[in-house]
């Protein structure tokens, strides 16, 4: 079973972050929240593994 990756894994992280911010540009708060929700679900589907998804939810809860 693969574990949730919590070490740096995004190539050119600054480019990714800038693209993410750009996707939110000119959106209202509601539109941005909806975009984020869609994004979470798309990424979750890409990951697929139930155990990893559970670990990810737990990790997000722990960091807040």
């Amino acid at each position: 079973m693969t574990d949730l990756i919590l070490t740096p894994n995004i190539n050119r992280a600054d480019d990714f972050y800038a693209e993410l911010l750009a996707a939110h540009e000119n959106l209202s708060k509601e539109e941005s929240d909806a975009l984020n929700a869609r994004l979470v679900l798309i990424l979750a589907n890409h990951i697929g593994g139930r155990a990893v998804l559970s670990q990810a939810i737990k990790a997000a809860q722990d960091a807040g």
Binding site: I5, N9, I10, A13, L21, H24, S32, D62, A63, G64
Partner: peptide, 30 residues
């Protein structure tokens, strides 16, 4: 843009990165 976020969402994402960076190494490059 990271230091002085100009929208609510940009600030939320920024703060999420900072919260995550305390516990998880992956967020530090962000």
């Amino acid at each position: 843009d990271f230091i002085t976020p100009k929208s609510t969402t940009s600030r939320l994402l920024r703060d999420a990165v900072l919260d995550l960076s305390e516990k998880y190494e992956f967020a530090r490059p962000l």
